[in-house]
């Protein structure tokens, strides 16, 4: 799962007086679940393997996942308790129901990357009802942060050209 990492990070640019007064990080299990979901959401097909007819999934760089989970932690500590509860409830729904949708009783974080992708895809279907809304909520906030990482911005061609 280890991949080339980048030394580039997106620093906190907000003034220090806005930092949460108590920076009480979430529990490690919460970090593990968030990282497991993020890895699945942002995984890609491995091109080199596909050339040999064996398409495999490639997780994103581990350092970028770590950065995003840290930033997500900071984000949720900066916003109100109700938002924090809603997001964590949505994430818990995904990691609880996800394995069930693919007939597994293992914890979500211990599933293979392919199984995690499959599980989230099933929850993202209309028949999954409110779970689809949970996928949407978690994916949207994670994507918001993910695409602020300088490396992701370069890869997606988001670096701005000259101003008008």
């Amino acid at each position: 799962m280890a991949h080339p990492t980048s030394s580039v990070t997106a620093p906190h640019l907000a003034p220090s007086h806005l930092e949460p007064t108590v920076y009480d990080r979430h529990a490690p299990s919460w970090h593990r679940d968030a990282a497991a979901v993020a890895e699945a959401v942002f995984s890609k097909s491995s091109t080199s393997s596909a050339e040999h007819g064996h398409e495999t999934l490639e997780p994103p760089p581990a350092a970028r996942i770590d950065w995003m989970v840290d930033d997500l932690d900071h984000f949720l500590l900066s916003v109100g308790g109700r938002s924090r509860f809603v997001f964590r409830a949505a994430l818990t729904t995904l990691v609880t129901l996800g394995p069930v949708t693919i007939g597994s009783l293992r914890p979500f974080a211990s599933l293979s990357l392919a199984d995690r992708v499959r599980a989230l895809e099933r929850l993202d279907q209309p028949l999954a009802g409110p779970a689809a809304l949970c996928v949407f909520a978690v994916k949207t906030l994670m994507s918001f942060l993910w695409f602020e990482h300088p490396d992701t911005q370069v890869e997606a061609g988001l670096v701005r050209g000259a101003h008008r």
């Binding site: 699945a40 959401v41 942002f42 995984s43 890609k44 097909s45 999934l57 992708v117 989230l120 895809e121 993202d124 996928v135 949407f136 994916k139 949207t140 906030l141 994670m142 994507s143 918001f144 942060l145 993910w146 695409f147 602020e148 911005q153 997606a156 988001l158």
Partner: peptide
């Protein structure tokens, strides 16, 4: 762009 990406259909690849 992150919000656009989040609203796109699909997971992973």
């Amino acid at each position: 762009p992150g919000v656009v990406a989040g609203a796109m259909p699909g997971i992973g690849p």
